[in-house]
Simulated scan of single mutants.
Amino acid sequence: MRVPDVAPPPTQRLAPLTTLRLGGPARRLVDAPSAAAVIESVRAADANGEPMLLLGGGSNVVVADDGWPGTVVRVASTGRHVERRSDGSVLLTVEAGEDWDDVVAACVADGLGGLECLSGIPGRTGATPVQNVGAYGVEIADLLVDVDVYDRRTDAVREHIPAADLGLAYRTSVLKGRDDVVVLRVRFALPGTGESAEIRYPELARTLGVEPGARVPAGAARDAVLELRGSKGMVLDATDRDTWSAGSFFTNPVLPEADAPAEAPRWPAGHGLVKVPAAWLIERAGFGRGHAGPGGRVALSGKHVLALTHRGGGTTADLLELAREVRDGVRARWGVELHPEPVLVGCAL
Score class of each variant (00 low, 15 high):
Met1Asn: 13
Val3Phe: 14
Pro9Ala: 00
Pro16Glu: 08
Gly24Arg: 01
Arg27Asp: 14
Leu29Lys: 00
Val38Lys: 04
Val38Leu: 11
Ala45His: 11
Glu50Lys: 13
Leu53Asp: 04
Gly58Lys: 08
Asp65Arg: 09
Asp66Thr: 13
Val75Thr: 03
Val82Pro: 01
Val82Ser: 07
Glu83Tyr: 14
Arg85Glu: 15
Ser89Phe: 05
Thr93Ile: 02
Val103Met: 03
Val104Ser: 03
Ala106Asn: 06
Ala109Gly: 11
Asp110Met: 14
Ile140Ala: 13
Ile140Pro: 11
Leu143Arg: 15
Leu143Glu: 12
Leu144Ser: 11
Glu159Asn: 14
Ala163Ile: 05
Leu166Ala: 15
Gly192Asp: 05
Glu195Trp: 14
Ala197Ile: 10
Arg200Asp: 09
Gly209Ser: 08
Pro212Trp: 05
Pro212Phe: 12
Ala218Phe: 06
Ala220Met: 12
Ala221Asp: 08
Ala221Glu: 07
Val225Gly: 05
Asn252Cys: 02
Pro253Thr: 04
Val254Gly: 13
Pro261Glu: 00
Glu263Arg: 06
Glu263Ser: 10
His271Gln: 12
Lys275His: 03
Trp280Cys: 01
Leu281Arg: 04
Ile282Gln: 04
Arg284Pro: 02
Gly286Arg: 04
Phe287Ala: 00
Gly288Thr: 07
Pro294Ser: 04
Gly312Asp: 08
Gly314Asp: 08
Asp318Asn: 05
Val326Phe: 01
Gly329Trp: 02
Val336Ser: 00
Val336Ile: 00
Glu337Asn: 07
His339Val: 13
Leu344Trp: 11
Val345Leu: 07
Cys347Trp: 03
